Amino acid sequence: MLGEDVVQGLCSLTVLDAGICGTSIRDTSSATDTRRLARLLVKAGVDIILFAGGDGTARDVLDSIGGAIPVLGIPSGVKIYSSVFALTPTTAGSLAASWLTGEERAVAERDVVDIDEELLRAGLASPALYGTLSVPVDPSRLQSRKAATPASDANAVAALARAFVRGMESNRTYILGPGGTTNAIGAVLGLATTRLGVDVVRNGVLVTADADAHALEAMLDADFNGGPATVVLTPLGGQGFVVGRGNQQVTARLLSHVPLQIVATDGKLSSLAGRPLWVDSGDDEVDAKLNGYAKVFTGAGTHTVYPVRRVFEETQGTTTTKEY
């Protein structure tokens, strides 16, 4: 179903009145369509553009309209490192509504970043500033920009990886999520794990490289060959998302049956400046289960008890966090 069809259906059910900008797109859309439609929306005189996607879509919007009008990203891509996105689709809607009905309509310039995936796979890249877009001001409902791992933290990452490997149990399946920290664990094991993917390891052997959600859930159905399993994830530096950003292969169903171990250096946790780790699995029960406090593995014999929160929920226009 096309977005146009959804909007027209809503218009028939509510007082919503919407016009369709430009010609319909009935085939596979592309970045060219995104840029063209953004320019048409500016020409039509809209107050704000909401766009759904990831960092690539943010770049397309920036390329096409620059800072002509405010924008707000609805997080729905794989890479969501930029700080022009709301925490969730729900918070995007509530932020846009409160901004449109407000008197000041304050905006701030926030970063659009992107990353060269091929270089990242080789461990040679970090998110680079591509430009800035004007975004409604509300830090509580906007995500932060992903922070690159500083060179000074490299030794800490390597030490954490060595310590984690020393504690790995025989016959336990480890599902290593994306990221430099988990990739370092694979490197200590001497395995060619995928920096952007999810890898399955057992008894020092790479069982499956770059596993997708179907493969992981098939292993779950097979009870991981009758042995225990652990999902190992590291948060996005500077943002704090540990579930639901860049690791969508790790599904809510998997997390409902397999325990989660979070790994992060003290430096990465410090980069959050007191903000919690965020979980957004797409399943309320799973997020509620993860909400609270977690023991984050930070190195040899050390753990940090750190707050984990499900992403903001909107209750009658008021942003709150649920406690369990």
Rank of each mutant, 00 (worst) to 15 (best):
I74Q: 04
L191R: 08
A68P: 04
S98R: 15
G237A: 09
V231W: 04
D114T: 15
L16M: 14
T91D: 10
Q143R: 12
V243R: 00
D111F: 08
S152C: 06
T193N: 09
G299E: 00
S24C: 15
N155H: 02
A288V: 01
R35Q: 11
P70M: 09
Y81K: 13
E4S: 15
V200W: 00
G67Y: 12
E118L: 12
V107M: 10
C21Y: 11
D138I: 04
R145H: 00
V279L: 00
A209L: 15
S83L: 03
V78L: 13
K289Y: 12
R105G: 10
Q249M: 07
G66W: 00
A97M: 15
A158T: 06
R35G: 08
T132H: 13
G19D: 09
G180N: 01
E103L: 12
L233V: 13
S29H: 14
T315P: 01
N203D: 14
L2K: 15
L220D: 05
L129H: 13
F164N: 01
F297Q: 02
G9A: 11
L196C: 10
T230I: 09
V305Y: 14
S29C: 13
V201L: 05
V165D: 03
R35L: 11
A159C: 03
L160W: 01
R141C: 05
A38F: 06
I20G: 06
S94E: 05
G246S: 04
G267L: 01
K43F: 06
G317K: 06
A122D: 13
T23E: 13
T23H: 13
T88H: 04
I175T: 10
T57N: 11
S64I: 06
L129Y: 07
G227I: 00
Q248G: 05
S271R: 08
D266C: 09
S281P: 05
L160C: 00
I69H: 02
R110G: 05
D60H: 15
S256H: 08
T132F: 11
E169H: 12
I74T: 10
G226F: 11
T149L: 09
D27W: 14
Q239Y: 01
L40C: 10
A209Y: 12
R26M: 10
N247K: 01
Y130T: 10
S271K: 11
A148P: 11
R202I: 08
L119R: 14
P75C: 09
N225C: 12
H214L: 14
N155K: 13
V113H: 07
G274C: 09
V157G: 00
A44N: 03
R195Y: 10
R310G: 07
A97W: 09
R245N: 01
T90Q: 11
G54L: 09
S82F: 00
L37M: 02
L50W: 06
D153N: 04
R141G: 03
Y293W: 09
R202T: 01
L176F: 08
L189A: 12
D280R: 02
Y81S: 13
T234P: 07
G131L: 07
H214M: 10
A156I: 04
A31W: 00
Y293G: 01
A161C: 06
V263F: 01
R145I: 09
G179S: 05
V188C: 11
T230E: 15
G227K: 05
V107R: 00
T302M: 01
D47K: 07
K79I: 04
S170I: 02
R36C: 12
A52R: 09
G73K: 02
Y306N: 04
T234K: 00
A86W: 02
P75F: 09
G238K: 03
R245S: 03
L133A: 05
